[in-house]
Each structure stands twice: as structure tokens, then as C-alpha cells.
């Protein structure tokens, strides 16, 4: 009877959405920045589209999971809930991101030339900025969704939104590193990605440590969650394989100038980061141990 179990109401679909939303937003955001900086134009062009596509995919999964049949449409018909509910807020933010993201990205793709605006000018750029701003919120809001639940100490934690933001951005870089396998990018561009990835991985590692420490010190339920969080999968999968190893790989890639080598190191790191990111979301969601109803 001492078996500890995390919550069972939200499962893999939610995990996938958290993962895909963060990843998509991160991809868009970095692509937009690269585009603004004029770096890796082809990568940036593709990335700005991948972003909203992936977020849309994640949203569909989430909606399939969250709502029975068409009930889920109710999310958009009760704006009053925007005042209190982070799911409503998130739905609107995510929807906004998808619309603006597509609006910004699509004109650069064949078949959408008919759109009366251009990605880099006027309205198109405004869409881009709007999407970029929203992209910063898309990885963060799930942290708020979970964070307001006070009866689950592992979630009710100020570090969680930050954790999700860094994790989202980090996986965004990883996506670009993988896309870079198939488009023309120079070593400088790859190094730029590697630096961003390196910095984010370090930040994420630190946030993660802080997060686990906070969870560990929030009562017995928190400790129970921490025990789930610090299981083998978490330590070896999320922290070591998903962060420490990529840091090493990226550091090595920075020291290298061979395009192929940098590419491969980046891609391997990217796969690890993506896997780690997914495991991280899974660990956080499933380690949501409720406080017992009776006071401890």
C-alpha cells in the first residue's frame, strides 16, 4: 500500500502535446530569429513552417484527448474562462500562434503565392512578430496549466514554466539541426545552432536540478514525486543522455570545422535532445502525485 503512483488522468497524448508545442514553438522562434539575422535562409524558411505545423499536430492530439467528440470546440466559445483557466488561455495562445505562424510562413512556399502579403514585408512580418511573441508563450503556458494545481506539489512549482520554456526552445534547436541535414547550411550557421543548443542545455540542466530540488522539499507528496522523477529513466534518459551528452557533443562540434562532422554531431545531439525532451515531459506529467486527501 506504499506504492506511489502519479496521476493517471492525463497521459501520453498530453505529454506529446507538451512536447510538440514546445518543439514547434522553439523551431519557429529560432527560424524567425535566423531569418531576421539573415542566417541560414533555407533552414529558416522551412523552420518557420515546421513550427506551426508541429504545434497544430500537437494541438490536434491534445484536443482528441481532452475532448469527447465535438465537445472540444467549447474551448473557443467561452471567452469568460480566459480570466481564470490556463487551458483556455493556452488554447487561444496556441491557436493564435498557429494562425500567425502559418500566415507568416506560407507565402514563401509554392502554392501559396496567391496570398496577398509577403513574409518579409509589412503585414507578413507583423504576422511573424506576432507569431514569435506567441511562440514564447506556447512552451510556457503548459507550465502554467500544471503549475496552478496546488494539490500536486510536483507541478505547483515556479520552476516548471521556465523548465518547459527552455526545454521547448532546446528541442526547437534540435529540430533545426536535423533539418539542417537536408538543406544547405554552412559551418558558421551550424555553430550558431550548436551554441544556442549548448547554452539552452546548460540552462535546462540547471533549471532541472532546481526543479527537482524544489519538488523534493515540498512535503511527503513532493518527495514521492521526486522519487518518481529521479528514477533511472529520468536520470539517465533525461539528464545524462538528453542533456549532458548533447552538451559534450555540441562542445566537440564547436571545436570542429568539418561540415560533415559538425552536421553529424549536431544531428546526433539533436536526436538525444528530442528523446530527452519527450521523456522530460513524460516524467513531469506522470510524476504528478496528488496530495493524499487526508492531511499528512
Amino acid at each position: 500500500m506504499t506504492e506511489i503512483k502519479g496521476q493517471k488522468h492525463w497521459g501520453w497524448m498530453v505529454v506529446l502535446d507538451l512536447f510538440l508545442a514546445g518543439l514547434g514553438a522553439g523551431t519557429f522562434l529560432f527560424s524567425f530569429v535566423l531569418d531576421r539575422l539573415g542566417e541560414c535562409p533555407e533552414l529558416a524558411r522551412i523552420g518557420t513552417l515546421i513550427g506551426p505545423v508541429v504545434v497544430l499536430l500537437g494541438s490536434v492530439l491534445l484536443l482528441l484527448d481532452l475532448g469527447e467528440g465535438g465537445h472540444v470546440l467549447r474551448l473557443w466559445f467561452h471567452p469568460a474562462a480566459l480570466r481564470t483557466s490556463w487551458i483556455t488561455r493556452g488554447a487561444w495562445l496556441q491557436t493564435g500562434f498557429i494562425i500567425f505562424g502559418f500566415a507568416h510562413a506560407l507565402p514563401r512556399f509554392a502554392g501559396f503565392a496567391w496570398l496577398p502579403w509577403d513574409a518579409s514585408g509589412g503585414l507578413g512580418l507583423a504576422f511573424g512578430w506576432a507569431a514569435a511573441v506567441l511562440a514564447l508563450t506556447v512552451p510556457v503556458y503548459p507550465g502554467m496549466v500544471l503549475g496552478v494545481i496546488r494539490s500536486i506539489p510536483a507541478w505547483n512549482n515556479a520552476a516548471l514554466p521556465v523548465l518547459f520554456l527552455f526545454a521547448g526552445l532546446n528541442t526547437g534547436i534540435a529540430v533545426l539541426q536535423l533539418v539542417a541535414l537536408g538543406v544547405t547550411v554552412d559551418v558558421a550557421g551550424l555553430h550558431l545552432l550548436a551554441i544556442a543548443g549548448l547554452v539552452l542545455s546548460v540552462l535546462l540542466l540547471l533549471t532541472l536540478a532546481a526543479y527537482v530540488e524544489i519538488v523534493r522539499h515540498t512535503g511527503t507528496t513532493g518527495r514521492a514525486s521526486a522519487r518518481l522523477l529521479t528514477s533511472g529513466v529520468f536520470v539517465w534518459g533525461v539528464a545524462v543522455a538528453g542533456l549532458v551528452l548533447p552538451i559534450v557533443l555540441l562542445a566537440v562540434s564547436l571545436a570542429s570545422t568539418g561540415l560533415a562532422q559538425v552536421r553529424v554531431l549536431g544531428a546526433v545531439s539533436a536526436v538525444l535532445v528530442l528523446a530527452g525532451g519527450l521523456l522530460l515531459r513524460h516524467a513531469v506529467v506522470t510524476s504528478g502525485v496528488r496530495m493524499t486527501v487526508r492531511s499528512d
Partner: peptide
């Protein structure tokens, strides 16, 4: 009006809600 998202189920500290 309920869409069945179970957010309330998680938010309730008393495990009083059931999807």
C-alpha cells in the same frame, strides 16, 4: 458545456471529480 478535459479532476485536491 463540459468538454471532458479533466483539468478540474486534477485541480480538485479531494479527488471528487471523475471523468
Amino acid at each position: 458545456k463540459c468538454m471532458g478535459c479533466r483539468y478540474c479532476v486534477l485541480a480538485c485536491p479531494y479527488e471528487a471529480r471523475h471523468p
